[in-house]
Amino acid sequence: MTAIDRNMHAETDQPLLAVQGLTKRYGGRIGCADVSFDLFPGEVLGIVGESGSGKSTLLSCLAGHLPPDQGRVIFDTAAGPRDTVTMAEAERRRMARTDWAFVHQNPRDGLRMGVSAGGNVGERLMAIGARHYGDIRAQAIDWLGRVEIAADRIDDRPRAFSGGMQQRLQIARNLVTGPRLVFMDEPTGGLDVSVQARLLDLLRGLVREMGLSAIIVTHDLAVVRLLADRLMVMKGGHVVEQGLTDQVLDDPQHAYTQLLVSSVLQV
């Protein structure tokens, strides 16, 4: 970041997440290398790139699922900016349950398949101290409604749900605690296009109403165009280009981004 960049940010509000020089190696191979960016409150950042480009590694490092080899991930906590990489494990876990949320590509990785839909949502509330059964159930019903799951399905297990419903349930489970930052790994991957559209609409509404910030990893350029304010393009573990989403897609500067954009099939 240049001095001019820093001055511009100083005169505005604090970034919610400031990532500096984040690097992860797998032995001699690069997972992601020297990634830096700021994410501001209410912003949605898309990360695109082909399989193996390092986007999922980056997301895992950001969310604290993988320890990075170098770099800092500074989150603006209630008590001020803190580096989550050097934070104690217990504290990071607590943050992952309250301020952060993580939506997995496969709902099975983010849901408890043996627990009812209502239980999946309520469990997150109990984890942060909610104890009143009636309140928890009422909030669970409210959230199922927001993600368009009928209240009479509250006692069904996720196994009995379609893939799209499972994904919506996972989103409800993640957002019920009112996080400020949501990490999403291919949230619309593996879903029918009609179900994808419904999910995109839902996510956009939630981002606006809750003032959420989100980091979305995907290989689907149509998804980022509709959801992301800003875009980061990765190749071989490096960020090759970043900027406003429509600028990166409409006027790509890097050879790889030009190839990526021109490879999309038109429908």
Binding site: D5, E43, R230, L244
Partner: peptide
């Protein structure tokens, strides 16, 4: 702001779009 300028100034209401940060353009 979806095409980058090579050089020059584009002022819209005081902001130079050609130099602005993404969040300023948003």
């Amino acid at each position: 702001g979806n095409y980058l300028a090579a050089s020059g100034v584009i002022r819209v209401g005081g902001l130079d779009v050609a130099q602005a940060q993404p969040r300023q353009i948003i």
